[in-house]
């Protein structure tokens, strides 16, 4: 090593600290400036105005309630548009959510709570007027939310993880809540898992993406040993039973006969591995849908024939629709939107 005097070394360190601090401060200012810019509306973006949002079916026709991602003062708020004119003016509620779903006058909003040091997350059960009915602390970052068709049951999934060096072990935690009785199952991992008639015991069981059939039964994804499975759950028996392999984020059709899910298709690039498929539960036949891009979302059924899902977009995500029988191609429904529910 070149022999430098202590004085020189300290001067070099001082100079470096100054340069590095300047770089750090600049990026910090830039990032906070960008954060502030997102609070101002972008020209050409969708019109968003403050207004009432209700989870009760309106006489005027069906509405879509979703998280608005368009820049401006109502970014991240629950907003609604008429289902027939998804490009119309959005009515913003003032309630901010990361993920959302609603059915039959009950909503679930997974939201961030900004703390002094670190953000925490909570699940808020909303009534038809978007007033808080109850809330639950979440153990991780929200990803999926569902409400049963009756509006009685609510489920959500969060990502937990990143506590090892370079944070590579991710897991999920899925909870189910009965809003009538307050019965709360904090993790489906506590349920008995059954595969081929045998009780499955594994330390690496993971669940995500619940979809409800009725107030007792549901479907979800279970993962163990690096594989995913479609499971059928029974809330009273507290069991989940493996139905089929390679099914993620199932979404049950309104008539309960079909499931649209994302399937990991071999041969696709590792960063875009999924395609949407529909599974007929009577024949157990799978059919690929007309969307040829990789979809990482739990779809919602617009009606018995069409599903809606999100894909990455300029403002985070855009919503698309595609026929649920494999015919036709995708249609862009609206930009800068996430987590839709049809009411």
């Amino acid at each position: 090593m070149t022999p430098l005097t202590r004085r020189t070394r300290l001067l070099v360190l001082l100079a470096a600290v100054l340069v590095l601090s300047a770089v750090a401060a600049t990026t910090l200012l830039h990032a906070s400036d960008r954060a502030a810019r997102k609070d101002r509306a972008q020209p050409g973006g969708p019109r968003v105005t403050a207004g009432p949002v209700s989870l009760v079916p309106a006489a005027a026709g069906r509405r879509i309630v979703f998280r608005n991602l368009a820049w401006g003062p109502h970014r991240d708020e629950l907003t609604s548009v008429a289902a027939t004119t998804p490009g119309g003016t959005r009515s913003a509620s003032g309630v901010k959510c990361l993920r959302f779903y609603a059915a039959a006058g009950t909503g679930v909003c997974l939201q961030a709570v900004h703390g002094a040091v670190q953000d925490s997350y909570r699940a808020v059960v909303l009534d038809a007027q978007l007033h808080e009915h109850a809330h639950y602390a979440l153990p991780g970052i929200p990803t999926r939310a569902r409400v049963s068709p009756s509006g009685h049951l609510v489920a959500w999934t969060v990502f937990v993880g990143g506590d090892s060096y370079a944070g590579t072990d991710f897991s999920t935690r899925t909870a189910v809540l009965d809003t009538r009785t307050g019965r709360f199952d904090a993790s489906l991992e506590d349920f008995g898992a059954i595969r081929d008639g045998h009780r499955l015991r594994a330390a690496d069981l993971n669940f995500w993406g619940v979809t409800f059939a009725d107030d007792e039964h549901f479907y979800a994804t279970m993962a163990t040993g690096g594989k995913t499975f479609l499971v059928r759950g029974d809330l009273n028996a507290r069991t989940v039973t493996v139905v089929r392999a390679n099914v993620e984020c199932p979404s049950l059709s309104p008539d309960g006969t079909r499931i649209v899910f994302k399937k990991r298709v071999s041969g696709l690039p590792a960063d875009a591995p999924w395609r949407l498929y529909v599974l007929d539960l009577r024949t157990m036949r799978e059919t690929p849908l007309g969307e040829t891009r990789s979809v990482d979302d739990q779809v919602v059924w617009r009606d018995g024939r069409t599903v809606v899902y999100s894909l990455p977009g300029d403002y985070g995500a855009d919503l698309y629709s595609v026929a649920a029988d494999g015919s036709g191609g995708p249609h862009r429904l609206m930009g800068a939107a996430l987590s839709p529910a049809y009411l």
């Binding site: 370079a166 944070g167 590579t168 991710f170 993962a223 990482d296």
Partner: peptide, 20 residues
């Protein structure tokens, strides 16, 4: 390490469940 899960899920919108 602390923000990586948040970055992947909230920032990039990915599902980091590739099992590690």
């Amino acid at each position: 390490t602390a923000v990586l899960p948040l970055y992947l899920v909230a920032g990039l919108g990915l599902s980091p469940l590739g099992f590690g």
